[in-house]
Computed example of a mutant assay.
Amino acid sequence: MAKKENWIAPSILSADFAQLGQDVKDVLNAGADVVHFDVMDNHYVPNLTIGPLVCESLANYMSREGLEAPIDVHLMVKPVDRIIPDFANAGASYITFHPEASEHIDRSLQLIRDSGCKSGLVFNPATPLDYLDYVMDKIDMILIMSVNPGFGGQSFIPTALRKLKEARQRIDESGYDIRLEIDGGVKVDNIAEVAAAGCDTFVSGSGIFGKANPNDPNRFDTVIQQMRDELAKVG
Rank of each mutant, 00 (worst) to 15 (best):
I171V: 14
V188S: 09
S115V: 03
V54S: 02
A101T: 14
D33F: 10
G150I: 12
L53V: 09
V122D: 02
A69T: 08
G235C: 08
S204Q: 06
V34K: 04
I142K: 11
S174A: 10
G153N: 11
E193S: 13
I178C: 01
A30C: 12
L53D: 08
D172A: 15
P128M: 00
F151V: 12
L164F: 00
T96N: 09
I208Q: 07
A101E: 01
A232T: 12
E56H: 12
L28I: 15
A2V: 10
D133S: 12
V39I: 12
E230D: 07
Q169A: 14
D200H: 03
E230V: 08
V54I: 14
D177P: 03
C199I: 00
G235K: 15
L129I: 07
P214I: 11
E5Y: 03
V223M: 08
A167S: 06
L28R: 13
E100S: 12
I139V: 15
P70I: 04
L111K: 15
K211L: 10
L53R: 09
P214G: 01
E181F: 01
S93H: 10
L75H: 06
Y134N: 14
N213S: 11
V34M: 09
F17N: 05
F37C: 08
G21H: 11
S57C: 05
A101L: 02
S108Y: 07
A232H: 11
I139H: 07
R168T: 05
P99R: 08
Y131N: 11
C55P: 00
M141P: 00
D172N: 15
L180R: 07
A196K: 14
E100F: 01
K25Y: 13
T96F: 00
K165V: 05
D38Y: 08
I50K: 04
M227P: 06
V203H: 04
L129C: 02
T222I: 04
S63K: 15
G207T: 08
I224K: 12
R113S: 13
Y134F: 09
C199G: 02
V135C: 12
D229T: 14
C117N: 13
A212N: 05
Y61G: 05
V34Q: 04
I208L: 07
L121S: 00
Q154V: 11
G66W: 00
F202L: 06
K233L: 15
R228N: 10
P158F: 08
S57M: 04
D72N: 10
M76E: 00
D140Y: 08
D183W: 00
G184D: 03
Y44C: 01
G21S: 13
N6M: 04
N213L: 05
N218D: 13
N215R: 11
T127A: 07
R162C: 03
P125T: 11
Q22F: 06
F17G: 01
L143Y: 10
H74Y: 00
R170H: 05
G198K: 05
W7R: 10
L129M: 02
